[in-house]
Nucleic acid binder design. Structure first.
Lengths: 207, 207
DNA sequence: CGATGACTTGAACGCCATCAATCGCTGTGG
DNA sequence: CCACAGCGATTGATGGCGTTCAAGTCATCG
């Protein structure tokens, strides 16, 4: 979609590369650019003063992030792995927006998609138990990055934990339990290469 | 803001009244109308199959709700008390939206405000303990409906609990604790009439 | 090899949920 | 006017789920 924006509007754009763990932008920083993941993965998070962290979303290839309506970023974004992004100057969008209603429509759609995801995540964080959370996570990722039924998770157990609002040990225990139940298996001991064997079983846990 | 929309665009609109506990619209129903609270209060929630409930937002006078980009509502909305709403047919907006970029901008702003609230709530649900949650709730409501320093909460302890992702007893205990600490007091035994005595104390608990 | 970091697994604790009793206010009917 | 049912809220007791602390495993890399 950003590509569409870019091509439609001839806004100034470029590519940027980030290595593992690098900050792309920080919370409350001026939102001068918006981003699209070309390759790699990004996490967006908020922090409490004592370091507790809540990851709001993972951004995978194709996803747009850093799109704010206000002037400042509301999350900190970091590359989880070696990541390439497409970057668009925000200002260059603003002129276009004033004259092109279809463009604003696109922004609105993107924002609404965002909203929908976050609303569902709120239900998970407020009301689901740990197994349901991990099952929901697996199904989400399964839908988003399964290449030939093998998921190559870019994020650590800690990242998953901070996304799901639980301790990292809890994530680990749930995954082991799912393996015992035959819902999934790890690809020859690679702890981030997961094959889903029984999506229905996970879905039953989740709903 | 809806008023602005209405007056700007001469879209068809009307008023509706709902009594305590009535459903205004249900999740997954066609989103034919959008609403603004004139008087009263509304809660929006999602349900899990076994009845666990997560309230996503409380809508107070002036607030707009039920604004969807897709064709279906993503929450169920119910009147918490006797409530009057201003209603606008969604279709009548759509024509306007195509021609008037400022109008789409307004919708985008509203959606973004929504998003911001939900993002902050995600941090609360994922990472805050029970006292922090209740403190945050009190401060939010204090900012939104304090008339002369007295809050008249329209919602029950159960509603608050389902908003904060805790048990209703936990809400009750936290409020009692805050009272003991001198952070608040109840107006002559009215359990929903709260006076905040030490907002700074609550804020310290929250951050 | 030894060191480091990610992950798993075990044990114990603690926060909060659950269950249950009680209080207090409201409204209804005798 | 009082008795009583009904509902929301508070408070207490108990238990469980998930956190925390700690040890151990495994892969990677110097």
């Amino acid at each position: 979609m950003l590509r569409t924006l870019v091509s439609q509007s001839k806004v100034s754009s470029g590519e940027f590369k980030y290595s593992l763990g690098t900050e792309i932008f920080g919370q409350a920083e001026p939102a001068d650019y918006i981003y699209q993941v070309i390759e790699g993965a990004v996490r967006s998070h908020k922090l409490l003063s004592d370091g507790r962290r809540q990851i709001g979303a993972f951004h995978l290839p194709g996803d747009i992030f850093g799109l704010e309506n206000g002037d400042f970023h509301r999350f900190t974004a970091e590359a989880i792995v070696k990541t390439t992004t497409c970057v668009v100057k925000r200002q260059s969008l603003e002129g276009v927006v004033k004259t092109d209603p279809a463009m604003v429509q696109s922004l609105l759609t993107m924002t609404t998609d965002n909203l929908q995801h976050v609303e569902n995540h709120m239900l998970l964080l407020g009301r689901k138990n740990s197994q349901e959370r991990v099952a929901a996570f697996l199904l989400e990722m399964h839908g988003r990055l399964a290449a030939a039924d093998v998921m190559a998770l870019p994020m650590s157990r800690r990242d998953i934990a901070d996304y799901l609002g639980v301790a990292l040990e809890t994530v680990s225990r749930a995954l082991s339990e799912f393996q015992r139940k035959g819902y999934l298996r790890f690809l020859n001991g690679m702890q981030r290469q997961i094959v889903i064997l029984n999506a229905a079983g996970l879905a039953e846990l989740d709903r």
